[in-house]
Design a protein around this nucleic acid. Structure first.
Lengths: 199, 199
DNA sequence: ATCATTAAAACAAACGTTTAAATCAATCGT
DNA sequence: ACGATTGATTTAAACGTTTGTTTTAATGAT
C-alpha cells in the first residue's frame, strides 16, 4: 500500500526533523528509522524536501481545521473568542507535541515551506485574535488604549512560549500541567486587558 | 593579529548561523563570508563547533553581564524587579539582534553548547523572575493565588515571543516599535498579576 | 507477462578536517 | 645594521566521509 509507506515515513521522520532540524538529519537515518529503503523517500516524496513538506503539512493540519471551524462558529464577544483560542492552544499541542518545534524552526530558519504553509496559518490566527481584541475594545470589554495587533502577539506569546521552554522548564516547574499553566496565563492576560469597570 | 581573525570570523558567522542554523552552513561559506581561508576555522577555533561555541558565548555575554548586575543591584519590591527585566529585554535584543534566534534554536535543537551556555543563563533569569514574583505575592503586591514559576514563564513569553515572531509580524503590525510593544505587554501583565486593592 | 514496488549499488557533489608548502614578521649572531 | 633563521600564520590542495539522488536489477502482485 502506498499510504502505509507514506505514513510510516512521515511518522518516523517527524521526531527526527523536530528534534534535530531539517539539515542535520540524513535520508539514510530517516530510512532506517522508518525501516524502509533510502530510495523510498525519493520514490514517494520526490526527495528529502518533499518528505519534510509532508511532515509539516501533517503537523499543521489541526491548526487548519481549527481555523476553518472558528471562521464559521465564532462567538460574539471578544473575550469568548479569546477563550476559544486559549482552549485550542493546549489541545493542539497535546495532539501534535512536535508542532511547536516545527513552527519555531520555520520562524527562525525558514525553509521553502515557510511562505506556503507556516505564514498562511500564523497570519490567519493573528487576524482572528486581532479582530477579537479590536471588537472587544470597540464594545468596551477591553481597555480603550489597547493596540489589538500588539495584544494579539502578547496573547500568542504568553500562551505558547511555555511549550517551547517546556523541556527546559520542566526541571524548574516541578509538576505543572499544561492546563494549569494556560489557565493562569490566560487569567493574567484577561485581567490585564479587561476594563476595570466592565461588568 | 589573532584577535582580528577571531572577531572577523565570529562576526561573519553570526548572521549565517542565526539565519540558517548550525548544520546548514558550511565552513567554506563561513570562510568566504569572513574573507579568510577555510583552515583558519580549525586553526583558531579547533573546528566548526568551536566557532559556533564562540559565537554563542559572544551572543550570551550581555545576558551574563545583566545577570551579574541584577544579583547585586536588585531593588526591593517585586514590581520594580520585574520592571528591570522588562526594560532589559528590548535593550538586550537591540544589542544582539540574533540572540533570540540562537536561544530558540538551542531550545528546539540543542547542540553541545546547550547545557554549558544556554541552560545556565536561562535558569538564572527564571530564578530571578520567580523570586521577584514569589516575594511580590508574599508582600501583597501581587494576587495571592499566583504560581511564581508559571508566572515567570508567562512574563518571559509575553515579552520575548514578539522578537521571535518579528520577521513575520512586521508585515502585520504596521509601524510598531519594540519599545511600544514591550511597554503595552508589560502593562497588561502587571495589571493581570497586581492585587486589585493594592495601593 | 506486465507493471508497480523494493533493494542494493553506484553516482557525483559537498562536507569537515588535515597536510604540506608558501608567506610573513620578528629575533639573533655577526 | 643586516642577512640568516626561527616560528607563526596563511594558503591551496588533498584527505576520507558522508551527503542526496539515481540507476539497475530483483521481487512482488495482478
Amino acid at each position: 500500500m502506498e499510504q502505509d509507506m507514506r505514513t510510516k515515513l512521515i511518522e518516523a521522520a517527524t521526531p527526527l526533523f523536530a528534534k534535530r532540524g531539517f539539515a542535520a538529519v540524513s535520508i539514510r537515518e530517516l530510512a532506517k528509522a522508518a525501516d524502509v529503503n533510502v530510495a523510498a523517500i525519493s520514490y514517494y516524496f520526490g526527495g528529502k524536501e518533499g518528505l519534510y513538506t509532508a511532515v509539516l503539512e501533517h503537523q499543521f493540519a489541526p491548526i487548519a481545521e481549527k481555523q476553518a471551524w472558528l471562521a464559521q462558529n465564532s462567538p460574539q464577544s471578544g473575550e469568548e473568542r479569546l477563550l476559544l483560542y486559549a482552549q485550542a492552544v493546549p489541545a493542539v499541542h497535546g495532539q501534535r507535541p512536535f508542532l511547536i518545534r516545527f513552527m519555531h524552526a520555520e520562524m527562525i530558519n525558514p525553509t521553502i515551506c515557510f511562505e506556503a504553509v507556516v505564514k498562511k496559518y500564523i497570519t490567519g490566527l493573528f487576524l482572528f485574535l486581532s479582530r477579537a481584541i479590536a471588537d472587544g475594545v470597540a464594545a468596551g470589554e477591553f481597555k480603550p488604549g489597547i493596540n489589538p495587533g500588539q495584544a494579539a502577539l502578547s496573547l500568542a506569546g504568553i500562551l505558547n512560549f511555555y511549550f517551547i521552554a517546556k523541556p527546559l522548564a520542566q526541571s524548574l516547574l516541578a509538576g505543572c500541567s499544561d492546563q494549569e499553566f494556560v489557565e493562569q496565563s490566560f487569567r493574567i492576560y484577561l485581567d490585564g486587558i479587561r476594563r476595570d469597570d466592565h461588568a
